[in-house]
């Protein structure tokens, strides 16, 4: 039953990514060219509503349905890993126009070559695991 709920949430997420065109390479290119408000509107409104929602849930001390506290693990402090990691991520995002969520959606939509991006992303994650101890965090 719970699995079905997660599957349904995923399906809605996939449809939202595809229908809002956030999964389209063209929209990501357009965003980095400041060619349209579209992507900024999507992310901006998601963050504003998300922020209001999360702050409200915290203020009301709402518990998750299973009785545990909400999964809002604070991120570790620091600058380097977020800035360097973020820039590396951004270079890839700009190059292939797909971030992890939309990757899965595009594979499902039948864009077979996205498997190459997904394969690369798994390799990249693996490289991070290998190099973790040597990187500034």
């Amino acid at each position: 039953m719970k699995t079905l709920v997660y599957l349904l949430i995923g399906i809605i997420f996939g449809i939202v990514m595809y229908k809002s065109e956030a999964a389209s390479w063209f929209r990501i290119y357009e965003m980095f060219q400041f060619g349209s408000f579209h992507m900024y509107g999507i992310m901006g409104s998601a963050v504003v509503i998300g922020m209001i929602g999360v702050q409200w849930l915290k203020k009301k001390k709402v518990k998750a349905l299973d009785g545990t506290s909400l999964s809002l693990t604070p991120k570790d402090k620091g600058v380097k890993r977020y800035l360097f990691g973020g820039i590396i991520f951004g270079l890839g995002w700009g190059l292939v126009g797909a971030c992890p969520g939309p990757m899965y959606t595009l594979v499902g939509a039948g864009f077979v070559s996205i498997f190459l991006i997904l394969l690369g992303a798994i390799i990249g994650t693996f490289f991070y695991g290998l190099l973790k101890g040597k990187l500034p965090h």
Partner: peptide
């Protein structure tokens, strides 16, 4: 291009501890 882009996305996301959904939204 596709594989390299994927590597950058995967590596960067883990290094930064999240991607557009984990950092950007959550």
């Amino acid at each position: 291009i596709l594989i390299l882009g994927g590597i950058l996305v995967g590596f960067g996301a883990r290094y930064a501890g999240g991607c557009t959904s984990g950092h950007g939204i959550s």
